[in-house]
């Protein structure tokens, strides 16, 4: 069995030139942990997830630098966190797209997919090898669901 037989086709995506606000709304409304970011041709360029979103409500230096583990002196309140997020609202989400871990292809063997999922917290993207175009996503429920269905 291969990846193409269990993946969810036509997944929800966000275009790289869409604003951060739109991607944030997508995460919030669907309770997604992350959403794939694609370009105008549908090629996957990364993902925008909850970690990236949380990073936007802190000073950039604090996120980039391990030496700033203590941030108590910032004395922030909710309004400060909100201000930082609002400042980024209109930025293109592609700016904050993060690298995706393992990328699957339609012909990736199912055992290999499971092996990747055991090490990943997110759903995994399935892309066409030649074009890099996103064609589906695989979640752990895609696999567990199928196994349970077949066993009943």
């Amino acid at each position: 069995m291969t990846c193409s037989e269990i993946m969810t086709s036509d997944p929800v995506t966000v275009r790289e030139d869409q604003p951060v606000a739109a991607a944030t709304a997508l995460l919030r409304d669907n309770r997604f942990r992350s959403v794939p970011v694609v370009n105008a041709d549908g090629k996957m360029i990364g993902q925008f997830g909850i970690q990236a979103l949380l990073g936007l409500i802190l000073p950039k230096t604090a996120v980039a630098d391990d030496n700033l583990s203590n941030l108590r002196y910032l004395n922030d309140d909710l309004a400060d966190l909100q201000r930082r997020l609002v400042e980024e609202h209109d930025q293109p989400v592609g700016k904050y797209a993060e690298e995706v871990g393992p990328v699957l292809h339609p012909d990736t063997a199912i055992s290999q997919v499971v092996a990747h999922l055991t090490k990943s917290r997110n759903n995994l993207p399935v892309v066409e090898e030649a074009t890099g175009k996103l064609i589906g996503m695989v979640s752990y429920w895609d696999i567990i669901g199928r196994i349970l269905e077949d066993s009943q």
Binding site: P59, K60, T61, A62, D65, N67, L68, L74
Partner: peptide
Amino acid sequence: VLLIAPVTLLITEE
């Protein structure tokens, strides 16, 4: 500089 530069970046960002 290892200790002052990060705080400097934080201050200039704010």
